[in-house]
Simulated scan of single mutants.
Amino acid sequence: MSGSQLANTNVSLYAEVPTPDEIRLRCPMTARAAETVSAGRTVLEGILDRADHRLMVVVGPCSIHDPVAGLDYARRLRHLADEVSDTLYLVMRVYFEKPRTSVGWKGYINDPRMDDSFHIEEGLEKSRSFLMQVAEIGLPAATEALDPISPQYLGELVSWTAIGARTAESQTHREMSSGLSTPVGFKNGTDGSVDAAINAMLSASQPHSFLGINEQGRIVVVRTRGNRYGHIVLRGGGARPNYDTVSILMTEQALAKAKLAANIVVDCSHGNSYKRPELQPLVMSDCVNQIRLGNRSIVGLMLESHIEGGNQPIPKDLSQLRYGCSVTDACIDWATTERTIRAARDVLKDVLPVRQKTEPRA
């Protein structure tokens, strides 16, 4: 057998993908989009530095599968963001990659046609185009970094990045995070433990060298400076939530022991709502009340929200898909989203400025 045969026993095909530069030429950054992304990163860094008193709220569909409905949602969210901007800073969830426990649709980049045809080259270009349109609306975007190559195609259009519960322990993702240009939220493990996320924050704050690709698609050694804006995201786990006051206090103590800033984002979905979307507003209300009563460490919240509530399976006939309804995790609907965010703003509008004045700088 040849060396090639020995190396590629289980590989059926190598399909070339356009380089990051080629995708950028097809969908170049606009001045308006660049302004939105830059402003978003600056505000989020200010919130983490306690220079901005507002609370970040990362809100939007569990995943993007229909760009038309996604932009419909983005326009609605932009109006709401303007309404609550004195108290809450809204960032739209724009998730294109979905980690799978076993099998299932892996997201818009991997399978944009939702038919197992896996036109990844098409998914990258369409995802970049969607992010560009969201930025031109004036909304900063948040995404989960799952594939370590994708940021070279999309990273310049993202203002906040999540590292998921399944990948926070990954050395590859810790190294990648050390070079990302956004603040990075590391989720606690699926068992509920915060240790992996804290270790990830420590690792990502340091310089690293690793293999990657550059804008021309060449394999290079990437050398990073380290990312000082890592923070923890509590998403529940181990069959229990972890947004309660005791869990928050224990997380604060763990962060202090690691000499990390007490910056906590609470994901109101996933384990914190037992994956029941109707419980997300209750989780958010509880966290808002903790802040009202004196909590200083909760700097952000996350909601999974779409135009229609719930979720749906992917049918063979895609024309049967319900408009504005998730095909991954179940979401709250738009009316509930508006009520929940407006209620948080009403409670916190006079609380957060006072908290910021008494908050010691990290």
Rank of each mutant, 00 (worst) to 15 (best):
C287D: 02
E278V: 14
D286A: 15
E278I: 11
G294Q: 10
C287R: 13
M284G: 11
V283F: 03
G271A: 06
N289L: 05
A261D: 13
V288A: 01
V265Q: 11
C268K: 06
M284F: 01
L282C: 10
S273T: 12
R292K: 14
Q290T: 11
L293I: 06
A262N: 12
N263H: 12
N295G: 09
E278H: 13
R292C: 15
E278C: 07
V265Y: 05
S273L: 06
A261Y: 09
L279M: 08
I264K: 09
I291L: 00
A262W: 04
M284C: 14
L282E: 13
N272A: 03
R292A: 13
P281Q: 01
S269W: 05
M284Y: 06
Q280Y: 08
L293Y: 11
V265I: 12
Q290F: 14
K275T: 08
I264R: 05
E278D: 14
A261K: 11
N289T: 15
P277S: 03
S285A: 15
N272T: 10
N295T: 08
S273A: 14
H270P: 03
C268Y: 08
S273V: 08
P277C: 00
S273W: 09
M284P: 02
C287F: 07
N295H: 09
K275V: 10
H270N: 01
K275E: 11
Q290K: 12
L279P: 00
D267S: 12
N289W: 10
N263K: 08
G271D: 03
I291M: 01
N263F: 03
R276F: 01
I291A: 00
D286S: 14
N272G: 01
I291N: 00
N289M: 09
K275P: 09
P281C: 02
N289H: 13
H270M: 00
S285K: 15
C287W: 07
A261W: 09
M284T: 04
H270F: 00
C287N: 06
D286K: 13
P281E: 02
Y274R: 14
V266A: 04
I291P: 01
N295S: 15
N272W: 04
Q280G: 07
L293P: 06
G294L: 05
N272H: 04
V288T: 13
V266T: 06
G294A: 06
G294M: 04
L279H: 10
N272I: 07
L282T: 12
V288M: 00
A262F: 05
I264M: 05
R276W: 04
S273K: 10
P277R: 08
D267L: 10
S285C: 05
D267Q: 11
L282I: 10
P277A: 04
H270L: 00
S285W: 05
R292Q: 08
Q280S: 03
R292I: 02
V288E: 00
V265G: 09
C268W: 08
A262K: 15
L279F: 03
P277Y: 12
S273C: 15
S269N: 14
L282A: 13
L282G: 10
L279G: 01
N272C: 01
N295L: 09
G271R: 12
N289C: 02
L293Q: 15
S269E: 02
Y274F: 13
N295P: 08
A261C: 11
K275G: 05
C287M: 03
D286W: 13
V283I: 08
Q290Y: 15
C268M: 05
P281M: 02
L282Y: 12
L293E: 13
Y274I: 01
P281I: 05
H270K: 09
C287G: 12
A262L: 11
